[in-house]
Amino acid sequence: MRSFTNLEASIGRVPGRIVTRLGAIDFGRGSEALYRDQLPGLLTELSHRARVQSITASSAIEGVVVSDVDRAERIINRRAAVLRTRSEQELAGYRDAQDYLFQQDWRPLNAGLLLHVHRLLFAHTAAPGGAFKSQDNLVVDRSPDGTSTVRFKPVAAALTSFAVDDLISRYRDAHRSGEHHPALLDGLFVLDLLVIHPFEDGNGRVARALTNALLMDHGYNVGRYVSLEQSVAESADAYYQALLDSTHGWHEGAADPWPWLEYFTGMIAEAYAVFADRAAAAKTPGTKQERIRVHILRHAPATFRLADVRTAVPGVSDQTIRLVLEQLKVEGSVRADGTGRAATWTRTSVV
């Protein structure tokens, strides 16, 4: 679509800082095979965690929250026989959409795939899914006082089907040419899809689910092991600002794609850095307790949760983490604030 009309003009000259990120992304992709050979158990564990984080985070961005963590995990792992609320239904829908894109041969990329992913998102609800919007829509910001500001005006409903087909055709042609970095083309596809805004609801979730699929289709599998959706949720303001900055003048073909592409490539590069850190932690010599202890005292934030340690030091049980925390608490190295899942821990000394 618009971003693909003249690629040489829009992304022919890549800013130096983004060139550096693309190098880090390609280096990370090159390391994936090594990790698969040396740490298959770690990758299995990371993929399970990333799946849960991605489904909950992408849903939460849209206000779909199941506050009971155990209940949410039962839904994600298909152990809940009944979905009690609309949020539970939509959480299950994102689960189905992501699992389809991760586990099935979803190719080729076409309008039918987008419609199928959207249908899966709403399959457990009474809302219709699997159809493009029938009325024009606006993307707005709503303030606490009830006022709203138009963020951007999407493509008209009457032009949506054409716009989607045109975007996919131009995107596929751009990849076949081999003239531009795949991550940049994937980022442009997501940008244009969000500006087209082809559905009445669920546009962000469809775009985020497809982000992982498109990257994996070109060999960038980090989204399997580190949740990109979680990264978006943790940087939501920057995410929306980057999109806003790259939509000005889009309809006229005068938009600047680099604010969005800088955010997009930064997110992927950071995910690869996290992936490498977790792999390195798994290969660190010493017992599991020693690895946990080193992480808490030398690498963890000043205040953290048990779940943060679990994510940073793969391959250890919560019971082992709690044992080390209690030892450090007795030593006076950490203190606990609260109890249970909501508890936070604060480091009081560093070794």
Rank of each mutant, 00 (worst) to 15 (best):
L167I: 09
G338S: 09
I321F: 06
A207Q: 10
Y220K: 04
R172L: 15
S10W: 04
Y171H: 13
A33H: 05
V66G: 12
H197R: 04
W260C: 07
S177D: 13
A279D: 06
V66W: 10
E32F: 05
L121V: 08
G146H: 03
H218E: 09
S227M: 01
V222P: 12
R86T: 13
M267Y: 02
G249T: 04
R78W: 01
S10P: 02
E179Q: 11
A236S: 10
E88T: 07
G315W: 04
R305C: 05
N77D: 15
G223P: 11
Q103E: 15
Q104I: 03
S67R: 13
V222K: 04
V226R: 01
Q230G: 13
H197P: 08
E270V: 02
A126P: 00
D105T: 11
G332M: 08
I61G: 02
N137K: 01
M1C: 09
A238L: 07
R78N: 14
F27W: 09
N77C: 05
S58P: 12
I296D: 13
L159S: 13
A131Q: 14
T211N: 06
A238T: 08
E88M: 09
R71S: 12
L39H: 11
P40V: 09
L138A: 02
T346G: 00
F27Q: 15
A276F: 06
D217V: 02
F304A: 03
L120I: 08
R107N: 07
I268W: 04
R74D: 15
W106F: 12
E326Q: 15
R2M: 09
Q135W: 00
G16V: 12
A72P: 10
D68L: 02
I18D: 08
V226A: 04
P257W: 03
T44V: 15
R95T: 15
G340C: 07
S349A: 15
L214M: 10
V65C: 01
G23K: 05
G178Q: 01
I55L: 05
Q289F: 01
H248E: 14
L91I: 11
D136P: 10
T147P: 12
V232T: 09
G332H: 09
S349L: 03
D277V: 06
S148W: 09
D173A: 14
S67W: 02
G286Q: 02
L184T: 11
D256K: 08
S54Q: 08
V140D: 07
R170E: 13
F199L: 03
E326M: 06
M216D: 13
R13A: 15
L214E: 05
S47L: 02
P108A: 04
M1T: 11
Q289I: 00
S134F: 01
D237C: 00
Y94W: 02
M216S: 14
G223R: 03
D173C: 01
I76S: 10
Y100R: 06
V294I: 10
T311D: 13
P15A: 08
L101G: 05
R176V: 10
W345F: 14
V82E: 11
I296G: 11
R205D: 09
L91W: 07
T303Q: 14
H181N: 07
P301T: 13
D245R: 03
V52L: 12
L215Y: 09
T339Y: 06
A123N: 01
V334Q: 04
A126T: 14
L325D: 07
Y94K: 00
T265L: 02
P259R: 06
T320Q: 12
L43G: 05
Y225I: 08
I25Q: 09
G286I: 07
V64M: 00
S31R: 14
K153R: 14
V52G: 01
